[in-house]
């Protein structure tokens, strides 16, 4: 290759190289806060300062001493799990019916089922606090469960509808013609095919629930404090790396869950329902 040829080659590729540089900066921007929080969580100093000079696990020990953070994490996990299961119980049958419906009513129904995604959480929190107090549930695990289920249903419905539509009618028709009853078709064909969709819908719901501050804020009490509520109040009173430690723990839990899912059903549905 002559010098001019390689120069012209570079010239043609220049826009892409510039774009690549931009993308790298973008991901640095996206990941920087997370990386620094993790670094801080392993720091040894009382105050948050950079660069981190010595590393230790003292802030993780602090988590064990100051119970509210870990307790609320456990509470949040239970709440998220329970609301995802409830949302699946409500959402999966609805999603299956919607995905195959030719009825004009289906549009309206799916608008309602997906609407909780588009309502400011803080408003939903206030409204539900009124309502649930009025019917005597007040500030309780049940109230939180109801509130989180309302928000989880759309995630399950959206994912399952997308996956179920994606697999089309043919597999079920093939099963029917091979003599499978409706129930057998559902058990042996439909459910295995949409299983990953249900799973990732529920996972989405769990992740959203774990991080849902705006909704949980209104139902906070000594017994019903979710992790984000406790983190926020901690952050407003102290500014030490314990918060970084608990955040890191939560992230590790999510990552492990994700890895498990990747091993079992695969992640391909995580990115598709956008």
């Amino acid at each position: 290759m002559t010098a001019t040829a390689s120069w012209r080659r570079l010239e043609r590729r220049l826009p892409i190289l510039l774009l690549l540089a931009f993308v790298l900066i973008f991901f640095a921007f996206l990941l920087a806060p997370i990386v620094f929080v993790v670094l801080v969580s392993f720091g040894d100093s009382e105050i948050i300062a950079f660069p981190v000079t010595s590393y230790s696990l003292r802030w993780y020990h602090r988590l064990l001493e100051y119970r509210p953070l870990l307790d609320s994490l456990w509470f949040s996990l239970k709440l998220a799990g329970a609301s995802a299961v409830l949302a699946a119980l409500f959402g999966v049958p609805a999603a299956l019916a919607l995905a195959r419906s030719r009825s004009g009513l289906a549009d309206l129904v799916s608008t309602v089922l997906l609407a909780p995604l588009s309502i400011p959480m803080i408003l939903l929190g206030i409204a539900l606090l009124y309502k649930l107090s009025a019917i005597g549930l007040g500030i309780s695990f049940t109230s939180l469960l109801i509130a989180h289920t309302v928000v989880s249903i759309p995630y399950v419905v959206r994912t399952v509808v997308a996956v179920y539509r994606g697999i089309g009618r043919n597999y079920e028709e093939a099963a029917a013609i091979l003599g499978a009853s409706r129930r057998q078709t559902f058990t042996y064909v439909t459910l295995p095919l949409i299983g990953s969709g249900i799973f990732s819908g529920m996972l989405f719901a769990v992740l959203i629930s774990l991080d849902n501050l705006s909704l949980s804020l209104f139902f906070g009490s000594a017994q019903t404090n979710t992790l984000p509520v406790v983190m926020l109040s901690y952050l407003q009173n102290q500014f030490d790396p314990a918060i970084a430690a608990i955040g890191t723990v939560q992230m590790i839990i999510a990552l492990v869950a994700l890895l498990l899912i990747e091993r079992t059903v695969g992640l391909k549905f995580m990115s598709s329902p956008s």
């Binding site: 920087a32 997370i34 801080v40 948050i48 992740l207 952050l235 990115s271």
Partner: peptide, 29 residues
């Protein structure tokens, strides 16, 4: 890239905001 885009969603929004605190504070990064 998809993983890196979605990964921040796995972390608490409070953690991410706290991260900016760490970066932008007076004695921050």
């Amino acid at each position: 890239m998809i993983f890196l885009l979605v990964a921040p969603l796995l972390t608490s929004i409070i953690m991410r905001t706290f991260g900016w605190n760490v970066i932008l504070a007076r004695n921050g990064v």
